[in-house]
Design a protein around this nucleic acid. Structure first.
Length: 883
RNA sequence: GCCGGGAUGGCGGAAUCGGUAGACGCAGCGGAUUCAAAAUCCGCCGCUGGUAACAGUGUGGGGGUUCGAGUCCCCCUCCCGGCACCA
């Protein structure tokens, strides 16, 4: 055995051995129970970053642990290969996105292999390959024919200078990232998945996912946002039609029949409506603007800026009167209609009733524009003389108070026949009255919107539709799939280059054979990542999207990925699973049985700002801190310190793990990322501590080396032990218990590692070279090496081979008899404060413990002869004496 | 703005069901070894007072429940993630 721990040698040897024996190939027909362990596949951005290392190390620990416990483990890997960064790289370096992507994949695959993950590489897939995306296109055409996919207009960010659609990320302070031009919203036709049709099932299905973190389920439930409310209309008569015809959009309000429809969850406040607000895109707004230039200008202003909801929600709330009035359906009063920049056309009806007295946003809006605020809800008087007019302050139009919006305690006032009713009764009565008038009904509304998947970009999966003058939108027939994306294209940032590829665009209509145009939009890359987990079960199946092996492996037993995917990716994947189920491709309802959401790896960001506001981001590795000032190493000049953010390409704050692997080896890199923080917590990157992880491995190697040098030994198998060895054995079996629990149930690896470290510290202190002591040392080392094998597989492989040549590794079993203790120490508290310890027999009962505690020196001191008021005994823990 | 999280020594973190706060590791300090250094080994290490025993205090801030609160409840501050075209 080598005296020194040489990571590069043992890692190369172990990886060579694993590759040759193909031991990580999952068997499609095995007697052993299957365990499908999946980590979110990476976007091939160029190099692995620490987030990847963390994600795949966590997955590998769970995969290897289950393999050691006898499962037939499937841990696949692939590439989320379509996406925006490839186009950005193409613009910057004049390389085709395809070539860039394939080169990145090759490099990152090498890096993953160097980390020694137990991956079944025979199932590798890349979403940009036609043999993958052809099935996505196939499913698209099926869903299109079923009506699950439909076409409608939707807003995008339009850069008028580059003449291109921008991603939200590419809009910085309302301007295009490259051109600096003011971005405007533009309506274009897009294809949508009818995810709202599955809203109820996506919501109720969360209850069937006990293996998901509560916070993720809460976020998804809130995102779906089921609310029960009332949809109703304000009738109106338009003023004489202007010569310019308003451009109706079909969605939302209906100009023709003279009814402005709104949705509200607060129908109980309907008598307090003092105005209505419509989105800038609402047909009524367009109609009003036709002969009102000021309003037209305001609407144009509303159309500036990005479509991102965060921007919409944080901007200053502005509005303008349309001059139109609608009729309140219950009071018959005239209600003015305003255009509000905060009303979203894509949510509900694109119009809202405004009750300034009882909605905080409406309140602020009414105050700003001097609109009336009419109180219609009050709190019932409380016994303490409270109530709206009492304890919590009287209603006042000067300042908003929390209770104005209280739908639990509030009662209707100033509301005619509804006075005195609480929320439920009022909503019921009002909905019934509206229904009698034919002007409304109760309705369930979801916040969730249909999923628009059209992207005006080149590097994505082509949407398999052909546009024909006579036949309309025709899906490409299955036998003509895949619609192959040409891979020799270099985008230049001005629009979608596919539009300029005549060979791609011009085609024959599959229905009539006439000349037609191929759709040049590509799909949202979330589509590819919504079903890859299923394709891993049968990546080689050429006869269809999935075969029977999908049901054999699915649902995924353990899915691991970043918390940033808590909503979108995970919701889309759940939705897609149901789509595939309803196509008869799968039997299960949910894709992922257990979910581990790893915290982000975050790092500081550094940048400089050019005169035109453009920011250049610098990697933390190129920045150093001198006297508290961040300095760029290359030029010695200061840089601005940004926030601590998730490592990303756009902020250039990714830490390259390669240097770590080169200097210390893969095992140290793995051990350190696991030890630095529990998986669910975010990990703030710092180099400190890497040394410690490496030192531990060296120490482990040394302990094993010294033991092996003493000659062959076999693990302790029973008999009498000296006290020191007996104590160590007890610690060993406690550790086995803890490590198993930490990995399997708690999924917290830092504490598992700490427990083994403690065990090794204790082993180092054990003296004696007699055979029985050596046998305990052998037992401890074998078990420790095996328990560490999921985390640091290379060194474990090497050490196990030295400790038990030729034997297979098997997870250690807890010896209950080793855990038995005669005496334990209890903490002694007086009035909740720690004042001493007492030793009692493990078998001692409550009264015996109490007697010992009261007789103790500490108790005597604080009781001063008085009898205690109370004695609390917590078995196995402590005694608290209340004097 | 809305939704979801988080905050514990100089630092990363531990405390699993309300029961010893600071495990394990990093950094630091002292010592051993060495011609010297690296590596390694041993010891100390929340803060305040005290030579010490010990006492007080301490888990972002304020209040509460409890024999007992880092953990539960209410309010607040700051930080992070998501917000539908980054993935």
């Amino acid at each position: 055995m080598q005296e020194k721990y040489l990571p590069s040698d043992i890692e190369r040897a172990a990886q060579t051995k694993w590759a040759a024996s193909q031991i990580y190939r999952a068997s499609d027909d095995s007697d052993r129970p299957g365990y499908y362990c999946l980590s979110m596949f990476p976007y091939p951005s160029g190099k692995l970053h620490m987030g990847h290392v963390r994600n795949y190390t966590i997955g590998d620990v769970l995969a290897r642990y289950h393999a050691l416990r006898g499962f037939n483990v499937l841990q696949p890997m692939g590439w989320d290969a379509f996406g925006l960064p490839a186009e950005n790289a193409a613009i910057a370096n004049n390389v085709p996105p395809a070539a860039w992507t394939y080169a990145n994949i090759d490099h990152m695959r090498t890096q993953l292999q160097a980390l020694g993950f137990a991956i079944d590489w025979s199932r590798e897939l890349a979403t940009c390959k036609p043999d993958y995306y052809r099935w996505e296109q196939w499913l698209f055409t099926r869903l299109f024919e079923k009506g699950v996919i439909y076409k409608k207009m939707a807003s995008v960010n339009w850069d008028p200078v580059d003449a291109t659609v921008l991603a939200n990320e590419q809009v910085i302070d309302g301007r295009g990232w490259r051109s600096g031009a003011l971005v405007e919203k533009r309506d274009i036709p897009m294809y949508f998945f009818r995810i709202t049709q599955y809203a109820d099932e996506l919501l109720s299905g969360l209850d069937k996912l006990p293996g998901w973190p509560e916070r993720v389920k809460t976020m998804q439930a809130n995102w779906i946002g089921k609310s029960v409310g009332v949809r109703f209309a304000f009738p109106y008569q338009l003023p004489p039609p202007s010569p310019l015809e308003g451009e109706g959009r079909g969605e939302g309000g209906e100009v023709e029949n003279g009814q402005l429809w709104v949705f509200t969850t607060r129908a109980d406040t309907i008598m307090g409506v003092t105005f209505c607000a419509v989105a800038a895109e609402h047909p009524l707004a367009a109609r009003a603007a036709a002969d009102n230039p000021a309003l037209a200008a305001f609407i144009a202003e509303c159309k500036q800026g990005s479509v991102a909801e965060a921007d919409m929600a944080t901007m200053e709330k502005k509005g303008m009167d349309t001059g139109f009035e609608v009729t309140h359906p219950l009071t018959g009063e005239h209600v003015p209609v305003w255009v509000g920049n905060y009303v979203l056309m894509s949510y509900g009806e694109g119009a809202v009733m405004a009750v300034p007295a009882h909605d905080e946003r409406d309140f602020g809006f009414a105050q700003k524009y001097g609109l009336p605020i009419n109180q219609v809800i009050d709190l019932p008087p409380s016994p303490t003389g409270g109530g709206g007019a009492g304890g919590e302050g009287a209603f006042s139009t000067d300042a908003w108070q929390e209770w104005y919006g209280d739908k639990i305690r509030g009662r209707c006032v100033n509301s005619g026949k509804y006075d005195g009713l609480g929320y439920d009764a009022a909503v019921d009565a009002i909905a019934a009255d509206l229904e009698k008038l034919g002007l409304g009904e109760k309705k369930i509304q979801f916040r969730l919107r249909d999923w628009g998947i059209s992207r005006q970009r080149y590097w994505g999966c082509p949407i398999p539709i052909v546009h024909c003058e006579s036949c309309g939108d025709v899906p490409v027939p299955a036998e003509q799939l895949p619609v192959v994306l040409p891979e020799d294209v270099v985008p230049d940032g001005s629009g979608n280059p596919l539009n300029r590829r005549a060979d791609f665009v011009h085609c024959a209509c599959p229905r009539c054979g006439g000349a037609a145009r191929r759709e040049t939009d590509t799909m949202d890359t979330f589509v590819e990542s919504s079903w890859y987990y299923a394709r891993y079960a049968c990546p080689d199946f050429a006869g269809g999207m999935l075969d029977a092996r999908a049901d054999q492996w699915l649902p995924v037993d353990q899915y691991i990925g970043g918390i940033e995917h808590a909503i979108l990716h995970l919701l889309y994947a759940r939705f897609f699973h149901k789509l595939m189920r309803d196509e008869g491709l799968l039997a299960s309802d949910e894709p992922f049985a257990n979910l581990l959401t790893q915290g982000m790896v975050v790092a500081d960001t550094y940048y400089r700002e050019a005169a035109d506001g453009k920011k250049t981001w610098f990697n933390p590795a190129d920045v150093e801190l001198r006297d508290g000032v961040a300095i760029l190493k290359t030029d010695g000049a200061p840089v601005i310190v940004g926030g601590t953010e998730k490592m990303s390409k756009s902020k250039n704050n990714g830490v390259d793990p390669q240097a770590l692997i080169d200097a210390y080896g893969a095992d140290t890199a793995r051990l350190f990322t696991l030890f630095a923080a529990p998986p669910e917590q975010s990990l703030e990157w710092s180099d400190a501590g890497v040394e410690g992880a490496h030192r531990f491995l060296k120490r482990l190697w040394k302990l094993a080396y010294e033991h092996v040098q003493g000659g062959a030994s076999t693990a302790f198998a029973g008999g009498e032990l000296p006290d020191a060895a007996k104590t160590l054995r007890r610690q060993l079996h406690q550790t086995i218990q803890k490590v198993g629990d930490d990995i399997e149930r708690r999924k917290q690896f830092n504490t598992a590692i700490a427990a083994v470290m403690e065990l090794m510290n204790a082993l180092g202190r054990l003296e004696g070279t007699d055979a029985v002591t050596r046998s305990v040392r052998q037992e401890v080392l074998e078990a420790a090496v095996t328990m560490l094998a999921p985390m640091v597989p290379h060194i474990a492989e090497a050490l196990h081979a030295e400790l038990r040549p030729g034997a297979a590794m098997a997870w250690p079993v807890v010896d209950e008899s080793a855990l038995v203790q005669d005496e334990i120490e209890l903490m002694l508290q007086v009035n909740g404060k720690l004042r001493g310890q007492i030793r009692v027999a493990t078998t001692a009962g409550r009264t015996a413990i109490e007697t010992i505690a009261l007789a103790s020196e500490a108790a005597q001191k604080y009781l001063e002869g008085r009898p205690p008021k109370k004695v609390v005994v917590v078995p196995g823990r402590l005694v608290n004496i209340v004097p």
